[in-house]
């Protein structure tokens, strides 16, 4: 670069302003800028920008960190929450033999204000999933946009649109076969995906996956609305809900497979 000492390029000018040049190189730029009033004015203006930005916001780094932003506090909060994560919940379900009356529609009583936000978020995702289920599960001719015979294309397409690794859970062990899937609008113009499954009696189950950045994980919840129910959980990036024309217990069995498909690290 320094083989043309009297013509510096834009990159060199900025690197010089930001102190990112070695001393020799900086000396050359220094001399060139000093000899060119226009260049000097521009360089001064850029350097002033750095100084003003520092003056405007620099002090924030010296303010005491609020308790809620202490990493240790967040870590212990997450550890406390962990027993309520979906895996822990499903283990609890197994332990209780999946007998009825369990926690049906209510949320754990010990939840704090932050958890209430998450409850609202889960409810929201569940409602969107149930609305989509009601609309499409009754469709005979056009239940899906892309049918299961193009499963590979379907998965690739929806993964691309959601920017996430989307999979189609294998529900064959429960008697449900993939019909296909579609793209749906979710809140805020974000895309969502719906996969539809059907058993041999024509009962349908839909798996709804939407981008829903919450930064947190929630427990499995069961949400009921107008006689239909859905299991829902959130992970830090996405919301998942499983809705179906089937009772709660078989729907839970479906939900567990879906969960294991999408959260394989748990």
């Amino acid at each position: 670069m320094s083989d043309k000492p009297f013509a510096i390029d834009e990159a060199e000018l900025h690197a010089w302003i930001d102190g990112q040049l070695d001393p020799d190189h900086a000396g050359v730029v220094n001399a060139t800028v000093a000899a060119d009033a226009g260049l000097a004015a521009r360089a001064n203006a850029y350097a002033d920008q750095n100084r003003e930005i520092e003056a405007l916001f620099g002090g924030v780094a010296d303010e005491p960190l609020p308790e809620r932003l202490r990493a240790a506090n967040i870590a212990s909060r997450q550890a406390r929450r962990r027993w309520r994560t979906p895996l822990a919940a499903s283990v609890a379900w197994l332990a209780m033999g999946l007998t009825g009356g369990w926690l049906a529609n209510d949320w754990l009583a010990s939840e704090g204000p932050g958890d209430r936000v998450m409850v609202e978020a889960s409810r929201h995702v569940a409602q969107q999933a149930m609305s989509a289920h009601r609309v499409y599960a009754v469709e005979v001719l056009h239940p899906v946009e892309v049918f299961a015979d193009q499963r590979e294309h379907l998965v690739k397409w929806l993964s691309k649109r959601l920017g996430q690794d989307i999979r189609t859970p294998d529900l064959a062990s429960l008697g449900f076969e993939l019909v296909g899937g579609r793209l749906l609008p979710a809140e805020g113009g974000e895309p969502a995906a719906q996969f539809m499954y059907e058993d041999e009696t024509g009962r349908r189950v839909t798996v709804y996956v939407s981008l829903y950045k919450s930064g947190q994980e929630t427990a499995f919840r069961y949400q009921e609305m107008q006689g239909a129910g859905a299991f829902v959980w959130l992970d830090p990036e996405m919301g998942y809900a499983i809705a179906g024309d089937i009772p709660r217990e078989p729907l839970l069995a479906v939900s567990k497979i879906v969960y294991e498909t999408f959260e394989p690290t748990h």
Partner: peptide
Amino acid sequence: LQQLEQWSPNLRRYARA
């Protein structure tokens, strides 16, 4: 955790800006 705490003031400053 130490690393997170070390960089938190910087994150905060950038977030404010």
